[in-house]
Design a protein around this nucleic acid. Structure first.
Lengths: 121, 121
DNA sequence: CGTCTATGTTGACACTCGTCGATACGGGTG
DNA sequence: CACCCGTATCGACGAGTGTCAACATAGACG
């Protein structure tokens, strides 16, 4: 029952849409594709993560320092925990610049999620 | 940041995109909007639900009988449980026709999710 | 070096979730 | 009516998740 099979997500750089999976209207998802997609949706299935993500996405350049977005109503370790989850899902990348750590959205991964929800398949 | 005030999960009929929440690039999500969006994403954050959903979405008319999609590797009660979750999230509607129950996708809700992931905000 | 600030990690806890078997319900059919 | 088939609900169990306090790590600066 326990599936510790952590599907390794793309983790690719900005550019274009990664053809991870076809639109959901294109046919039945395979087991593997379903697990990959589910991992991405799960990353956005928490209100705190969603708020962190929107704060970063709405910053100029789609990038923000942790110190700029940490005010979401939970403790600092919890913020760090959620940012790690988003990073592991491939939705964010992080980079340390001196004292601060900056997180950037991974546009191609987000675009791939949106493409999968396109019903005009 | 313009946040639309939608009372509860749409559950509306096919037609156009429900303006649930602005694109994630449009500004910080409110607590309420984040919870609504998170609930929708959570509904698609499970591989079994994703496979059920894709099976329905890829059927002609975006509708399918339970008997046509129930083969996803889990027991019948579990299938029923997941379909209920998708229904409660507003992503599916169900209708009994004689012996069988048919599930249909709610295109507007799915389109709203895709719109929220549009980075070209 | 020592210290301060910013961020990440660890361990523990309560709670939620996915799953199943057993059971109930609803509607055809004989 | 009795029976069977398709689907939903219930109750229970193990695994997973979000949260925090405490602690650890990494630069900046004196």
């Amino acid at each position: 029952m326990s599936k510790s099979e952590v599907a390794e997500l793309p983790l690719l750089q900005n550019g274009d849409v990664v053809p991870c999976c076809p639109p959901i209207t294109a046919g039945e998802l395979s087991q593997v594709d379903a697990e990959k997609m589910a991992a991405m949706f799960k990353a956005l299935s928490d209100p705190v993560r969603l708020r962190l993500f929107s704060k970063i996405a709405s910053h100029p350049g789609g990038e923000a320092c942790v110190c700029d977005i940490a005010d979401v109503g939970v403790s600092q370790p919890t913020v760090s925990h959620h940012l790690k989850k988003l990073r592991e899902a491939g939705l964010l990348t992080s980079e340390r610049r001196g004292t601060w750590v900056y997180y950037q959205v991974a546009p191609s991964v987000v675009a791939a999620m949106a493409a999968m929800l396109d019903l005009r398949g």
